[in-house]
């Protein structure tokens, strides 16, 4: 403490009359700032190392043959460690999905936005409940599909319709539609 006062006096004379701080204050601030920048350079790679690694990212694309799924049934494939639901919808299911008033939905999306044009019979969604990540039931015709003939999440009671949209329960969003494209009529590439 006393040392600071002594040098402080010296420096006030040398530098200026204002109370803008001493040379020592500047050195301390500069050192602390330099240290903070250095720490930042260390923290960045440390946090990056916790992010998905390259091999995890490499599993980000899968090609699926959907020709074997008959109308009214579904298949489940793994993509990025999560199930992807592919449902071959019946005419009735498509009509049910299209008839809904979009305004009345929690997550307002029309059915057209959730399928590929001309391939309305195929609904592809990530099979993870948007509430807290459970896998909803409804892939088998014998499953409980909830009140809207889509999927039912038994964890907290969310119900999805035939377009994978949230209709009832705590989930805030519709089932995600992953990026995908049709390679040909019976093959899709997810990711």
């Amino acid at each position: 403490m006393s040392a600071e006062i002594q040098t402080g006096n010296d420096n006030t004379h040398a530098c200026c009359e204002c109370d803008c701080g001493t040379r020592r204050d500047f050195m301390q601030l500069a050192a602390a700032a330099f240290g903070a920048v250095g720490l930042g350079f260390f923290v960045k790679p440390v946090i990056d190392s916790l992010r998905p690694a390259k091999d995890t990212q490499a599993l980000a694309t899968v090609e699926v043959d959907i020709g074997s799924v008959p109308e009214g049934e579904s298949m489940t494939v793994m993509w990025r460690g999560k199930p992807v639901f592919i449902r071959h919808r019946t005419r009735k299911e498509i009509e049910m999905a299209q008839a809904v008033d979009v305004q009345s939905l929690t997550d307002k999306q029309s059915d057209e936005e959730r399928v590929k044009k001309g391939k309305e019979q195929w609904l592809v969604t990530v099979g993870v409940c948007t509430h807290l990540g459970c896998i909803p039931q409804g892939q088998k015709p014998t499953d409980n599909r909830g009140g809207y003939d889509g999927w039912f999440c038994s964890c907290h009671g969310s119900e999805y319709d035939t377009s994978g949209r949230i209709r009832k329960g705590p989930a805030p969003k519709n089932l995600d539609v992953p990026p995908y494209e049709f390679v040909n009529d019976t093959t899709i590439k997810i990711g």
Partner: peptide, 16 residues
């Protein structure tokens, strides 16, 4: 994703 180290709870999550 940073907690998981991936896109779901998987091996990177278990090890950390």
């Amino acid at each position: 994703e940073t907690l998981w180290g991936g896109y779901s709870v998987d091996n990177p999550t278990l090890t950390r």
